[in-house]
């Protein structure tokens, strides 16, 4: 092997030395767990429709129930095991958003309920709300003037 002297050479060498994630296995797990979470949502949705609720309310109930389940599993220390196995499969559905809020809430409990739980709750998921809500306001403004 030739000598490595510059930063560029070293970074290329490191890239080649670093082990890759088992991407096929990860994708397969993400696919079926993600699909399953959505399907659970679909069954709840169908049940709401069956009970005569409208589409908007049914969707909201699906979100609330899935978030509740994710929060419960996070509290029981089970969600991180699902997340390790499924990766994006549990992160990308609304369950990942719930886990991102609940996990710092539990972790920072040791710093008190106001600044610990209350303040640190959004350390991971805060950006989602900031970017999501800001984007929606921009869309709304555009819609007001141009549509």
């Amino acid at each position: 092997m030739k000598s490595i002297d510059t930063k560029k050479e070293y970074l290329d060498y490191v890239d080649q030395k670093s082990p890759n994630s088992p991407i096929l296995k990860n994708c397969f797990n993400a696919f079926w767990v993600g699909g399953l979470i959505c399907s659970i949502g679909q069954i709840i949705f169908d049940f709401c429709q069956y009970k005569g609720l409208d589409t908007t309310s049914s969707s909201t109930i699906v979100s609330i129930i899935l978030i509740g389940i994710a929060a419960f599993l996070t509290g029981l220390n089970i969600f991180n095991k699902i997340g390790k196995f499924a990766g994006a499969g549990s992160l990308v559905p609304i369950t990942g958003f719930a886990n991102s809020i609940v996990s710092p809430a539990i972790e920072y409990k040791s710093e008190g309920y106001v600044m610990g739980v209350g303040g640190k709750m959004f350390t991971v998921a805060g950006p989602v709300l900031v970017f999501g809500i800001s984007a929606s306001v921009i869309v709304g403004i555009i819609a007001t003037f141009f549509v």
Binding site: S18, G87, V124
Partner: peptide, 13 residues
């Protein structure tokens, strides 16, 4: 890094 309960995957490295 992250809270312990966060369901993320640790990279191989």
């Amino acid at each position: 890094r992250f809270p312990l309960e966060l369901g993320n995957q640790r990279p191989q490295s």
